[in-house]
Design a protein around this nucleic acid. Structure first.
Length: 288
DNA sequence: CAGCGTTCCTGGGCGC
DNA sequence: TGCGCCCAGGAACGCT
């Protein structure tokens, strides 16, 4: 599942492959891929044709390509790409056969390799938005992620401390701190030895700070491994397949021994999804 | 208004 | 063999 490290790998691939190139055509299959673009797929295709990509950017799990001004533009614009749970961006030869679940093809005026959006579960999609202070308007509600130069750790700690909600739910709330999904939330909670259903406001500020630092660290480690294992033509990530197997202590490790104390890792349902944790290192709060 | 449950999607895997 | 159910989960939305 693409979380921050996986999306960052994709961003780097895009920066290498499409920056400076001019879009010739954008073909969208079906309406769903452009459902977050209110004026619809035709408008999206029409407005992208002829635009030059000036850069590849990311905040949390959102990715966008900044575009050179259109002749009649009133604001800077960007093509936003969200990978959802299964989205992939592939750089392919235009003559290659289309993979199953291809929803978009972006070709360039130089006739070189094109960009394809492949998404099995169709939670991802494209949209066009105005940029305000370098961030698309539809991404403005997303908080800065731990790798953003403007990330204010202490402010995030104070925000979390004020929340009357389970800590895991808060870590997954992209308006508090972005980029953390189920995988890295479980890893950070395990490292900090905190149960995800502990009330955020009941944790001490140092504990909250440690949790955030663990989340940042585990994502940095994943990025370090993900960044080296991908073919140049495959701008995505099939998750951190290499990372998954070797380095995860908690996520998906139900039934395995805790790497710290040897207790059998347990899985619990929480927020309609699974959480894996150590019953001894991460004590469930009383009364829940 | 913050918090929380629900819903959108598809296909791989597995039990019977 | 084949059917049907479970599961993965980010983010928007609506209700309390």
């Amino acid at each position: 599942m693409p979380e921050l490290p996986e999306v960052e790998v994709v961003r780097r691939g895009l920066a290498d492959h499409v920056t400076g190139r001019t879009i010739s055509t954008v073909v969208l299959h079906g309406h769903r891929v452009a459902r977050r673009h209110a004026p619809g797929p035709q408008d999206l295709s029409d407005r992208l044709a002829g635009r030059t990509v000036t850069g590849a950017h990311r905040r949390g799990k959102y990715l966008w390509l900044s575009l050179a001004d259109a002749p009649d533009a009133v604001a800077d614009e960007a093509l936003i790409v969200h990978l959802g749970m299964s989205g992939q961006l592939l750089v392919t030869d235009p003559a290659d056969a289309e993979a199953r679940h291809t929803h978009a093809r972006v070709s360039f005026t130089d006739g070189g390799r094109e960009l394809r959006f492949v998404d099995q579960r169709t939670f991802g999609g494209f949209a066009l938005a105005d940029l305000v202070d370098g961030v698309p308007t539809s991404v403005a509600h997303i908080a800065r992620d731990p790798f953003d130069p403007g990330y204010d750790r202490d402010a995030v700690v104070r925000d979390i401390k004020a929340r009357r909600s389970g800590i895991k739910r808060v870590l997954l709330n992209q308006t508090v701190v972005s980029g953390i999904g189920n995988i890295y939330a479980d890893e950070a909670l395990w490292r900090a030895q905190v149960h995800g259903e502990r009330l955020a406001s009941a944790l001490t500020k140092p504990t909250i700070g440690r949790l955030l630092d663990h989340a940042r660290d585990v994502m940095a480690e994943a990025l370090g491994q993900g960044g080296t294992s991908f073919d140049a033509l495959y701008v995505n990530v099939n998750g951190a397949s290499g990372y998954f197997d070797r380095s995860l202590a908690a996520y998906g490790q139900e039934g395995r021994p805790c790497p710290r104390c040897g207790s059998t890792m347990r899985r619990e349902q929480f927020m309609n999804r699974s959480s894996t944790s150590c019953p001894r290192c991460q004590v469930r709060p009383r009364g829940l």
